[in-house]
């Protein structure tokens, strides 16, 4: 029975971590925004505002469109949040402290990222609305472009570990973190990370030029869930970046889990700051850069890190 109890604890821990992460992203994003714009910090407001706006969204009236695909519309945010949970469950806090460590952790994480495009596409397609479908198509173009550089950038971290397991990938970084070993890896991963949860400069599917893109018809609770799922995906991407490139639990003085959290927060800071500092990219520019610059760069990254290991 203890096996099932352990599984239950692991699932509950991942869920709690995601909830805490979503709240943290909401606060951290407002904090960075205030710092960038030079506004005075009002901590009590900063901490309370996400809760207040969530509560407001939760009780708001929900509207619907003409002949939507209701099951798919309801499924999309849940699928997105579930995929974020799957991705986060792979991230180890310490050598023995991980929700699950399958032998194919890298593939499971990649499959979760690939399924995100289905979730976003469903979300844009199901309300039967023109702008939402536009947003879905933008994410289709964006996702099919970032998929290959993402896989290649992550694949390079598998080489030194000689294993697809995430714990082994972190374990192999004891002497040298992958961010030093493969300098191109982390920037590539961060670009893709912004694109996966379409945040900041790559917020094309849900962009304001489409009046909210795929979530233009969302209201009330489903809007809240969608926003939370996006923030959760950002947390998962940052946590996996900390594990795959910044050496996970390795670090002096502090305990392993503390290092993982610190590194995740640092990467989240970079990801969130991009939303306040960088201008938004047009979709055709992103697609062009992905295929012409990012894929060759990621391939080069794999070849060079492979050559060093020979």
């Amino acid at each position: 029975m203890s096996e099932y109890a352990a599984a239950g604890v692991a699932i509950a821990a991942v869920g709690a971590a995601l909830l805490a992460g979503v709240y943290f992203v909401a606060v951290f994003d407002r904090l960075i925004g205030a710092l960038v714009e030079g506004r005075p910090l009002q901590w009590s407001r900063l901490l309370a505002e996400p809760v207040q706006s969530s509560a407001l969204m939760a009780v708001q009236q929900r509207r619907t469109t003409e002949r939507p695909d209701a099951p798919a519309w309801a499924l999309a945010p849940a699928l997105f949040a579930g995929l974020a949970a799957v991705a986060l469950a792979m991230v180890p806090l310490d050598r023995d402290l991980v929700a699950t460590d399958p032998a194919t952790g890298f593939v499971v994480f990649s499959a979760a990222i690939a399924m995100v495009m289905i979730a976003v596409y469903l979300h844009g397609w199901s309300p039967n609305s023109a702008f939402a479908l536009h947003g879905a198509y933008r994410y289709g173009a964006q996702a099919l472009s970032f998929q290959i550089p993402f896989l290649l950038a992550m694949l390079a971290t598998v080489l030194p570990a000689e294993s697809l397991s995430i714990v082994e990938i972190v374990n192999a970084q004891e002497s040298l973190w992958n961010v030093v070993r493969q300098p191109a890896g982390l920037p590539l991963y961060l670009v893709v990370g912004v694109a996966v949860s379409f945040w900041g400069p790559l917020n094309l599917p849900d962009g304001s030029d489409l009046a909210g893109g795929t979530s233009v018809e969302d209201s009330g609770l489903s809007r809240l869930l969608w926003k939370a799922a996006r923030a959760a995906m950002l947390v998962s991407v940052a946590a996996m970046g900390a594990a795959a490139f910044l050496g996970g639990w390795w670090g002096p003085w502090l305990a392993g889990p503390v290092w993982v959290v610190l590194k995740t927060v640092a990467l989240l800071g970079v990801l969130l700051a991009s939303g306040h500092l960088l201008a938004r990219v047009r979709i055709e520019q992103f697609v062009l850069v992905s295929w012409v610059v990012l894929i060759p760069l990621a391939l080069l990254n794999v070849f060079v890190s492979g050559a060093f290991l020979l």
Binding site: A114, I118, W125, L144, Q147
Partner: peptide, 21 residues
């Protein structure tokens, strides 16, 4: 066949999006 199963899901997600388009 853990690897094959996960790769099947990974591959199909992209393929179905292309199919939809």
């Amino acid at each position: 066949a853990e690897f094959l199963g996960m790769v099947l899901i990974l591959m199909m997600a992209g393929e179905m999006l292309i199919m939809a388009i």
